[in-house]
Design a protein around this nucleic acid. Structure first.
Lengths: 220, 220
DNA sequence: AACTGCGATGGAACAACGTTCCAGAGGAGC
DNA sequence: GCTCCTCTGGAACGTTGTTCCATCGCAGTT
C-alpha cells in the first residue's frame, strides 16, 4: 500500500476515470489506451487492478447505479416511491447512456440486488401476497431497466447533426406514409409519436403496472 | 444481375449465412473472416452488399423478427393475441439470443414497426381510447423487448459448465445470506427465484399490464 | 464477333483494439 | 544493506472491422 506517485493507481481511481471517459466519449470511446493516457500510465498497469474490459464496465455501471439509488426518499405512498425509484434509474440511464447496454445485457450483477431491494420493499407495501413477491418485483425491474435502456438507445441513435425532434418527425412521417391496409394502426399514431415526452411515457408504463397490481391484488 | 458462380453473392445469402453463424457461435463468433470463409469469398466482397457490421446485425435481427411475427394467429380474445405475439417474440429471442442486444439497443429500426402494428391492433381492440394508443402500445413493446432481452442475457451469462439450475441456486443462496436489516426483502425471495419458470414470469408481466389496461380503461 | 463499360469479386493491407508479457522500480521487513 | 514482493508502464502479439485496388466476366453496343 505504498503510493509511488503523488496519487497511486487504484481500482477506484480507474473506475472513476472510466466513468468520465464514458460520459464524455460514449461506450466506443473507452479504450485502455485513452484510459492509460488519462491516468498517466500504461495499459499493463490497469490490468493489475482490473481483470478485463467487461469487469471495468460492470464496476462503472455498479458505481452509477449505486449513486442513483442513494437519493431514495423514505416518504410518500408506496406507489409514489416506486415512481421515485424508477425515475431515479431512468434519469441515471439518461445521464449515462452507456449503462443501458450493461443493464439489459449483463443484468443481475452486483448492483442489481440493490434495485430489487428498493423496488421489492414497495411491492411488499402494496399488499402483494408473499408468494408473488418475486414475480411482481422482477417484472417491475425488467420494465424499468428495459424501457430505460431503449430510451437511451433511441436518444443516441440520432446521427450527430439531427436533433431529437427532427428524428422523431422523420420517423413519424415515414409511419404515416405506410399502406392503409397493412399498417392500419401504425400510421395513425405518428402524431402522438411526434410530440411525446420520454419521461411521461415511461411513467405511464409504471402507472399501468401499478394499476394492474392494484387490480390483481385488491386491498382489503 | 449475372451469377458469376453457381450461386452468386447477394444480401440475402449474406444475411442468411450471418444468422447461421450467430446461432452457432454467438454474437462474438460473427466476424467478416469466418463469414467470408463460409461464403467462399473475401471480406471485401461482402462490403459491396452490406455497409458495415452494424447494418448486417440489424438486417439479421429484422429477418428473425419478421419470421417470428409471421405465425400470428387471428383468433382468440385481444388479451390472448397480445400473449401470443409476446410469446412469439420471447421464444424468438430465446432461440437467437444475439438479437437481444440489437432489440434493446438499436430498437425502432425497420423491424420495429411490424411489432408495433401487431401489438397496437390488440391495444385498439382492447378499447383503449385513441389518444392513448401510442403510449400504451409502446409501453407494451418496451416491456416485451426489454424483458426478453434480459432473459436471454441471463440465460447466456452462465459460464459454460454450469447449468441454469446451478447458477440460480448459487445466486439465491447468495441473496439469502445477505444482512437481515439492509436486505429484508431480497433475502426472502431466494426460494422463489430458485424454482421459477422464465416463460411464466414473462407472461405474469403481460398479465399485470393487461390488468392495468383493463383497470385504466374499463370496458363500457 | 470483338470491344467496352461497369457491377461485382476477393485477396492484401491498414489502423485500432483488448490483452499479455516482462524488465524493472521502489517501499517494507528482516 | 539486502531481499522480497507488489506494482508499474512500455513494447509486442493476435484479431478485429474496414479500405483499397487489381481483376474478373456478363450486357449492351458496334
Amino acid at each position: 500500500m505504498a503510493p509511488r506517485r503523488s496519487e497511486s493507481l487504484s481500482r477506484e481511481r480507474i473506475v472513476a476515470a472510466a466513468i468520465e471517459v464514458l460520459d464524455a466519449a460514449g461506450e466506443g470511446g473507452l479504450t485502455f489506451r485513452v484510459l492509460s493516457e488519462r491516468l498517466a500510465t500504461g495499459p499493463g498497469a490497469i490490468y493489475w487492478h482490473v481483470a478485463n474490459k467487461g469487469e471495468l464496465l460492470g464496476a462503472a455501471t455498479d458505481a452509477v447505479v449505486l449513486a442513483a439509488l442513494e437519493e431514495e426518499p423514505a416518504s410518500g405512498s408506496p406507489q409514489d416511491r416506486v415512481r421515485a425509484v424508477a425515475l431515479g434509474l431512468f434519469d441515471a440511464v439518461d445521464d449515462h447512456p452507456w449503462i443501458a447496454a450493461q443493464l439489459s445485457a449483463g443484468a443481475w450483477q452486483a448492483g442489481t440486488p440493490r434495485i430489487v431491494e428498493a423496488v421489492g420493499r414497495q411491492v411488499r407495501a402494496l399488499g402483494v401476497p408473499q408468494r408473488d413477491w418475486f414475480v411482481t418485483t422482477t417484472v417491475l425491474v425488467q420494465y424499468v431497466l428495459g424501457a430505460a435502456a431503449q430510451n437511451a438507445a433511441n436518444a443516441q441513435a440520432a446521427r450527430p447533426g439531427t436533433s431529437r425532434e427532427e428524428m422523431l418527425d422523420a420517423m413519424a412521417t415515414r409511419w404515416e406514409e405506410l399502406g392503409p391496409d397493412e399498417w392500419s394502426f401504425t400510421r395513425t399514431i405518428g402524431d402522438q409519436m411526434r410530440d411525446h415526452d420520454d419521461r411521461e411515457q415511461f411513467l405511464a408504463g409504471i402507472d399501468i403496472a401499478l394499476a394492474g397490481i392494484a387490480a390483481l391484488y385488491p386491498p382489503p
